[in-house]
Every structure is written in structure tokens, then in C-alpha cells.
Nucleic acid binder design. Structure first.
Lengths: 288, 288
DNA sequence: GTCGATTACGTATTACGTAACAATT
DNA sequence: AATTGTTACGTAATACGTAATCGAC
């Protein structure tokens, strides 16, 4: 014999709040309604759940046990809706997590082409760890890492490389160098923006924080680039896309941390779903 | 957001049976009603659960996930009623399990005296193991064992002894003996009844089965005792209660298996509840 | 008097059945 | 023709609110 959910919900509130009045206010229903519901519940179970004296009800021993099991049943009910809605969304969206912004920009048109009609969800993360966890939790279906993940549960493929550059005014002391290292940049005030994923970790570790002028938006960054002659970070991929500013030169950074190889990965179990995407990615990489 | 139980119940039936018609027959409601319920469920979850073509509905991927979680929610609901009813009964009954009938007869009046108003439930078991398991499962609150249980979770106290006798016609070859052993009884046809707990195990092990004329009821046994001069088992406790038959003599059986010491036990956690009963039992044992 | 629970009664919601219909097999 | 699902409509069950009552602090 099954108990209707609304009875369990009301009972749980009564058990938690202690009085019918308090519970009725929480549930936005009247006390008489609750009073009847509790009687109905007791009647359906065929047991007494409360110790009633004139204007007071308290859970008896059976009531305490019932409250415990009611909570479990309600939890299972809540989990149902939560998981079903989550699953439904997951099958009609393709979700991509990335450690850097550039691969997202490159992949979005590809994904739209391969999964027409599906919603695209992209998210930037600072660390590979949170991306890997997100993949396991089905928060992401595809992730872009900056280090090769040694995990058999993953299907992984090499993606593009990116080389960090510093962009300087033409008349800057470093402007005529073929390359610079992070140590050359020490003491320089450099413009940056958030939303650059793991690059933030790299630059913060290599340079002291007072030197990094971190902006909260790309707009603010671009404003300051135009309005000042301060150096800012760039990359071969950005430059390839034509992201240049007049009277500046861009110089590669020689440290190995300034060069990255991106890896694209999905769960092995979902390999088939992304086969054609991975093939396209492979040919893109070979071509580029 | 919570889903009413009746919707989950109906959905579970549809998922299990495959068609609305089959499910509606199982649930004793009409198809149109089920059709509406499934639409309502989809509407409340905000997802599609079925793949519909003209006169056919099948679960889609989301529907399969939903069916799984619906089953869990329903199981939790069923467990609620089951456990609550079981608990409620357990607190208004005292349940005794025993390895032999005699202690039950002795304890019933005592229990009625100590727990007025409570329902008494008694059960006979053949083995100490099933009694101990029943105690842990809260199937029994008190058990009578024939061997001392070495378990710290139990509160245990020595109860009465019982000595097995054989009752024979006065002119039987063994009738003038002071005592006999099981080996003396070999080949003798002996009347017995079921419902004697562990004694059945003892006698079956000591004597070969064709010699034991086992009756399904005490009535049948008593009929045959009156109608024949066949030997039957007895005990000091039964004799003490005046259970004698004319022209028969009762002789103790000398094997150590024919003598038993009963132990009464409850869970240590319920020790307090039975303290006064245990005290009475102790004084009874000392007196007897 | 206030707070908390119950009873009595009317109402609005809604889950259900019947009948008719549509589409496949 | 038989099977299966949907739509339309009326009905009966029932969950709820309002008002009144009772007791206790």
C-alpha cells in the first residue's frame, strides 16, 4: 500500500517543525487541512503516529520511525526529478569544458556543425583536475586539457598547440629581441584579463602578482591596451587570427611553460558519439 | 518539486508492461486515465518520457532513466509502510522464541503478568541459530536457548533444566531399570509429536528414524498413547506438572544429550525493559 | 487573550470513467 | 476487424479554506 507524496511532505514538515501551525505556515496551507492529513496518514498506515493532548501533538515512537522513513521516501522522490531533468538536458546538449579560451573559440563552430539542433554548453576551468572530475560527473562530455591525461577510462587525442607571446610597444627595450623569458619580464607591469583559464595559473606562478594588472573583462583590457602602451600577453593562435595592435611587436616567451599542447578527451564509453568530431579535429591538426 | 505517488505507480506499471492497455488492466483503471496521467507526469517533470507514434508509445532514453528512479522512489515508499507497521507492532507485543515447548508454557503467564496489555507472540524453533538470528532481526525480543550463547550483545541468564524420560508400560523389559541410555532404546518403536523444538534434533540423531513414530499433533499423540502400549518420550518437568498415564513407568535417559539447561536471553540494549522479568525468573530458578 | 488543535461545512480541484475518434496491424 | 492511444465531456472523490469550538498557558 502506497502513501501519496503530499501526505509524506506534510508529515515531514510537521515532524520537523513540531506543531501543525508552524508546518501549515511553511506549507502555505491551513491547520485544519494539516490536521486532517495527519489523521488520514495514520489511518492509511493503521497506526498512531502522534501523542495527542488537548492542544498539542507530539510524535510518538512510531511517529519518529515514520518520520525517518518518510524523509527517505521524499529524498528518493526528489532525486527522481533531479536526475531525470539532468539526464534529459544532458542528452540534448553537448557540453565542453576547457582549460583555455582559445580551444573553445575554435571548437564551437565545429560542434554546431556536428551536432545540429543540440544546445552547446561551454565552460572555462583553471585546472585539469576539475575538468576531469566534471567529465566523470557528466558535467562535461568533452574536455580540453593542457596535459596528457593517463587514464584508460578516457578517449584522448592531441589537439592544437599554443605559444604564449608578449606584445610590447615598438620602442620598448625588449622590442628588438627574438624571444624573451619570464625572468626578462620581471618588474614589468603587464595587462591581463580573467577568463584565460590555466594561463592565469602559469603567469601567476612565473611573475609576482603586483606586476599583473588583472582586468575583469576583455572590454576593460582592450580599453587599457588602446589607452596605454603597457605590455600584454598574446599568443601565436591569437596573432594568427589577426589580433594585432598598431605600433606593437609580439615576441614569443621562451620558457617551456609558455608553450602548451592541448588535448581533447571524452569518456571511452562515449567514444562512438564523438568519433566523427575527433576525425575532423585530427585532420584540422594535421592541416594546421 | 515532488511527484505524487499514484503517478509513479502508474508510470512504473506502464514501463513494466509496455503498453497503456496492459498497465491499465493491471491497475484496474481506464486507458484514457493512464494516457492523461503519463502526459501529466511528463508535464510536471518538464521532459518527454515516451516516443509516441500513432498508436504506440515506447519509453525513450529519459523514460528509461525515469523508470529506474521511479522504482526506487516506490520501493522507499513501500518500505516506509512496511517498517512503520512492523515497528508499531513490535512495540505493542512481546515476542518470545524458544527451542522447546516447556519454557514457553512456563513463561507465558509470567509475561502476561509483567507486560499487561501487550500482545504475546511465541514461536518454537528447532535450532539456537535461528533464534539468535531472530533476536538480532527484532523478530524476537526474548529467546530460550539450550546452549549458553557466548555473545556480548546478549544479556543472558540461566533458566530451568529439563531431563528427558522414556515412559513405558509397567511390564516392559526395561521397566524396572533405574535409567536407560539411547542405545538401550534402539529398535524400540517410540511415539513422538512434532512441535518439540530441539528435542526433535536430539532424538533424530540418537535413534534411527523408522523407530520414531512422529505425529503431527499432540492430539494424535495422546490418542495413540491411550490406544496402545507404545513407549513415548517424557520429561521431569512434564511429570512434575502431573503428566502421567496409568500403568506406565517413566525412566530417565542417562545420555548427557538427554539433559538440558535452558538459557533465557535478550539483546543487551533491551536489558532494562526485561529487568523485572529476569529477576522473577531468577527467583523461580532458585526456588525450583 | 493568545496559541494550537479539532470539527463542521461548503467549494474548487482533479482524477477518473464513458463515449467517440484516429491510426495501425 | 482488432488493437492501441488520444480527445472531449461529465462526474465523483477529495484536498483545501473558512468559521466556529474547545483547552491550555
Amino acid at each position: 500500500m502506497l502513501i501519496e507524496t503530499y501526505l509524506l511532505e506534510q508529515f515531514e514538515a510537521v515532524a520537523r517543525r513540531g506543531t501543525l501551525l508552524a508546518a501549515s505556515e511553511e506549507l502555505h496551507i491551513s491547520q485544519p487541512s494539516l490536521s486532517r492529513s495527519m489523521k488520514k496518514l495514520e489511518n492509511e498506515l493503521g497506526v498512531s503516529l502522534f501523542h495527542r493532548e488537548n492542544s498539542k501533538i507530539t510524535l510518538n515512537e512510531t511517529g519518529k520511525v515514520a518520520a525517518d522513513y518518510a524523509k527517505r521516501a521524499l529524498d528518493a522522490n526528489r532525486e527522481l526529478t533531479e536526475r531525470v531533468i539532468q539526464f534529459d538536458r544532458s542528452i540534448r546538449t553537448v557540453s565542453l569544458g576547457s582549460c583555455a579560451p582559445f580551444p573553445i573559440n575554435e571548437l564551437v563552430p565545429l560542434l554546431q556543425e556536428h551536432f545540429p539542433g543540440k544546445t552547446l554548453s561551454t565552460e572555462l576551468q583553471n585546472s585539469d583536475e576539475s575538468l576531469l572530475k566534471g567529465l566523470e560527473n557528466h558535467l562535461y562530455q568533452l574536455i580540453i586539457l593542457h596535459e596528457y591525461p593517463n587514464d584508460k577510462k578516457l578517449f584522448c587525442q592531441r589537439y592544437l598547440d599554443e605559444q604564449l607571446y608578449i606584445t610590447l610597444p615598438k620602442d620598448h627595450p625588449l622590442a628588438n629581441k627574438k624571444s624573451v623569458s619570464f625572468s626578462n619580464l620581471a618588474g614589468l607591469r603587464i595587462l591581463m584579463a580573467t577568463g584565460i583559464g590555466f594561463w592565469m595559473t602559469v603567469t601567476s606562478e612565473k611573475l609576482s602578482s603586483p606586476d599583473l594588472l588583472i582586468q575583469n573583462s576583455m572590454d576593460a583590457l582592450n580599453e587599457l591596451i588602446d589607452a596605454s602602451s603597457l605590455p600584454f600577453f598574446n599568443s601565436d593562435q591569437m596573432l594568427r587570427l589577426g589580433y594585432r595592435v598598431p605600433d606593437r611587436v609580439s615576441i614569443p616567451i621562451s620558457d617551456e611553460e609558455a608553450h602548451v599542447t592541448y588535448w581533447i578527451a571524452c569518456l571511452s564509453s562515449e567514444k562512438e558519439k564523438f568519433r566523427s568530431l575527433f576525425n575532423t579535429v585530427r585532420s584540422t591538426v594535421l592541416r594546421g
